[in-house]
Write a protein that binds this DNA or RNA. Structure first.
Lengths: 160, 160
DNA sequence: GAGATCCTGTTATAATGTAACAACGAGAGC
DNA sequence: GCTCTCGTTGTTACATTATAACAGGATCTC
């Protein structure tokens, strides 16, 4: 898995591929990728950063896809619970998933200057954390890993 | 470092030691552990679980130590920024630190049934996450690691 | 066409977090 | 003593994030 998000890439293609993947996954699993849900995924993909629910809601509102908070939260819940997007707890915001379909334990690199978010792979089994949990008798179901720091683009600016 | 939080221990002593440590640290570093701040730390220690800012505020209010949100948030900010407590992002809540003074990268085990929170040591720097970040040119400053699952006490109940 | 299920629309409100400003108190320097 | 500064406190007002609850619609099944 690559860490994208800080590198240039063919954005339009990246969005189209992700949407197509989501459609496939949904029809394969009997899920409904309704217009609002698909549009929210598209919004997240097109920005390639973490977005708040209300920020998304405003876009939906302008497009006539809904005007009240539950509209955004429902779509986001759907996307998150089926692995098409993730919530970044540190930011109370949401990002599109980089590799939907694969069973994943994502980790995020969050730039504290520009707010960009890169998704990367979590530590597999996470030796120490997993061991500690096992020793304590704790069963891990989900892990949130979020690193805050400086992205390559902002490192220079911050030095000033 | 031990994972405490799921095991029985001498609670009164545990609180007193932690408060004493905090006092020492503060006087050694020219920080003011004011009544409100100390009381908030004590509250967090006595509950040994993650508590919301408003939950803490209500206790302070009953004790005449303050009635408005900023009172709680300021005390919590102080405790967090000086390492006496941590914020659990996943819960939007706060816990007392298990080993203040030591420079730490904490990780949390959060039980999704009973809400108890155990603090443990984070993965060492040579983890996969560190490598990935370095490769991407990202400088990590802080890491949030929060695992959700079942604590030993709740494992049996959840099986039902 | 009755019931089940999932999705949508809407109202209302809960929960979490901050900006901004006035006032207070302790210590430093004169 | 005086006053300047700095960190802390008290307070008002507000911003942001999130959810409960319920009515209506679409679709599918039997």
């Amino acid at each position: 898995m690559d860490t994208i998000g800080f590198a240039k890439h063919d954005h339009a293609a990246c969005i189209q591929t992700a949407i197509a993947t989501a459609r496939d996954q949904c029809s394969a699993n009997g899920l409904q990728l309704t217009p609002a849900r698909e549009r929210v995924l598209e919004i997240l993909l097109s920005e390639h950063r973490a977005m708040g629910a209300y920020e998304i809601l405003e876009i939906l509102r302008n497009e006539g896809l809904g005007s009240q908070p539950p509209v955004a939260y429902r779509a986001l819940d759907f996307l998150v619970s089926h692995g098409f997007a993730h919530k970044v707890e540190k930011l109370n915001a949401f990002v599109a998933c980089n590799h939907p379909g694969q069973d994943h334990a994502p980790a995020f690199l969050i730039c504290r200057i520009c707010g960009s978010v890169a998704e990367t792979a979590a530590v597999p089994k996470d030796s120490l954390l997993g061991d500690t949990a096992r020793a304590a008798g704790f069963v891990i179901e989900k892990v949130v890993i979020e690193a805050e720091g400086l992205c390559p683009n902002c490192r220079g600016k911050a030095a000033a």
